[in-house]
Design a protein around this nucleic acid. Structure first.
Lengths: 323, 323
DNA sequence: ATAATCTGTGGAACGCGTTTCACGGCAAGG
DNA sequence: CCTTGCCGTGAAACGCGTTCCACAGATTAT
């Protein structure tokens, strides 16, 4: 592999000059620049990025910690990160943690070992304090709200309130909710919104551990088996909502007449199902998190809230959907 | 930042010995090993991975080129790669290309610049010959079938045949198909299977550019507008199938009575929709591709075909689904 | 005319871990 | 007793691009 010293010899200049040409530094005479460029072509030189990284102390790479790469909601954030990274000529390394703490530790270690310049934490199970110990090694940006950290997030409390209020304005009082991991920051905020907004909130109407379409289908079966059922269900994701709706329809029940459903995410599934949903601009979250991670602003622990919107489909509203 | 020379000074040994301790080399006396370990603790030493990479000439990182990180089918492959990478203590860099050739070029460049040790190409639009020029810089593994390359793939021809045969055994003769990018290797194989297996294959029954749920919905609307319609439709993905089914049901049509549908992928959407589908073990594809990329076997251009299976739901079979 | 800048260039140090080579000591094999 | 061979250790080179510093010549400002 030819290196810049070979180039310098070939072009009869110093390595400094070669480096200048490579980095488009202005203080190079035209003839020497040309000599170097000829040498590059002649010897087929290709820059060794690793050497650049060691030299500059920057990897131009951001790490992304997320539980599952193939969950639609995480993938959407990843999409935003991917777009922004490409534009900024950065790379990103993804670690799938499955919420296993030792795996999350590996990711933090990678930041300390300077494999990445910064970290975007999409979701995590380690304690925030433990994660923040690694902030001495570089920026850490969360995609969830926590005090005293850099974060880009949606307000799950008000987002859930929007869904609940929509049900209430349609006259629903027997409202249930679905949650993902019951103790996550997001779920706790959602549960608070539920308990603050709705009068009747029995624990049998809080359906936990719902993430996938199939979880939705099993929630539907569970709902069918309940002696006392809510008439409306605010779900944790459009996928869960879709599972519920499809399972109920398969069994001859009607949505929203028998059970009104509101989704969460604003995915294309929602559009096709005519699902009322709380739309979340996940790509924006990814983009914003990335910008913070590569700028100096992270030191101020910026907190950027991304607004959500209620998209009206027909699954929340019996009156409209009647035919 | 403390480095191994600081450690050597502190522990009063040579850098060689420090390096030995760090890498668990056996030829180190117990007392010196302990001295080094004490120094590491005392100075809070953390290895600089970039320096290791430059020194060893290996990044322990694999690059992944794919068009979209958030498409379920690609994400599933990514999942396999992520799992395998973690187990092997490798990292992976993802590039989202959107099938833009200049972006794909960037990825190849990264291999040449030694940012990654190897490349997994999930899907691409550059010509294979052009991609293979970069094989001199490291392993390139495709997730699609091409001659004379390392590849892990499914046989789209026989996979499509399975779906078409299922329709035919139910008595269908008016069969249509959906394709993604019409000129991709996969689509061409699928179209060949269609034309070889089915007697009547008018071009109006080949629905191209279908990737998402919403594409499915618009195919359904298009189907409704056609004077002569197929009675069965083999789709390019479960998402497309879902879009078709949901749109048709929304408009009062029945699946499979009015239109029998078979999906592709074997996703959880298929399970919930009771969709007959050609199941593809995407995670396995990712895993296998990764193993090839990090082993020496890639030089022999191994070709690994992963088998598909037809999963029977009820959307292909009017008789069973009648109630 | 003189001081202060700006251009252009090269030598050498720097970032930092790995690895080759040489060498001394010691034990086992012949 | 001598030769291998294994241990244990360190100096120095290596991988390779960036950058600080010194210096010379050319301008521009005072």
């Amino acid at each position: 592999m030819t290196n810049i010293r070979d180039l310098a010899r070939e072009a009869d200049v110093s390595v400094t000059t070669v480096s200048r040409v490579l980095n488009h530094h202005p203080y190079v005479a035209d003839d020497k620049r040309k000599a170097v460029q000829d040498a590059i072509r002649k010897l087929g030189y290709i820059r060794n990025q690793t050497a650049v990284q060691l030299s500059t102390g920057q990897t131009k790479t951001i790490g992304v910690m997320l539980p599952y790469v193939d969950h639609p909601y995480h993938a959407a954030i990843l999409q935003g990160i991917a777009r922004c990274a490409f534009e900024e000529d950065y790379r990103f390394l993804t670690w799938q943690t499955n919420y296993v703490e030792s795996h999350e530790q590996t990711v933090l270690q990678a930041l300390a070992q300077r494999e990445v310049d910064g970290l975007i934490i999409v979701s995590h199970s380690l304690a925030v304090e433990d994660i923040l110990k690694y902030e001495q090694y570089g920026p850490i940006v969360f995609c969830e709200h926590h005090a005293d950290v850099s974060a880009v997030y949606i307000d799950h409390y008000t987002a859930f309130q929007k869904g609940l209020a929509a049900f209430q304005s349609l006259g629903h009082t027997e409202i249930g909710i679905c949650l993902g991991r019951p103790d996550s920051t997001n779920s706790l905020a959602r549960k608070r919104a539920y308990q603050d907004t709705v009068a009747c909130t029995p624990s049998e109407w809080i359906y936990e551990h719902s993430l996938t379409i199939e979880d939705g289908a099993s929630i539907a079966r569970h709902w069918l088996s309940q002696p006392r059922r809510p008439t409306a269900l605010l779900t944790a994701s459009d996928h869960v909502a879709a599972g519920i709706i499809l399972e109920l329809r398969k069994r001859g029940y009607r949505v929203p007449e028998d059970l009104a459903v509101i989704g969460f995410d604003g995915s294309d599934l929602a559009v096709v199902l005519n699902l009322t949903t709380v739309a979340v601009p996940y790509e924006t979250i990814g983009r914003e998190a990335f910008s913070i991670a590569i700028s100096d602003t992270w030191r101020d622990h910026p907190q950027i809230e991304i607004p959500t919107t209620l998209l009206n489909g027909l699954t929340a509203n019996p009156a409209v959907n009647e035919r």
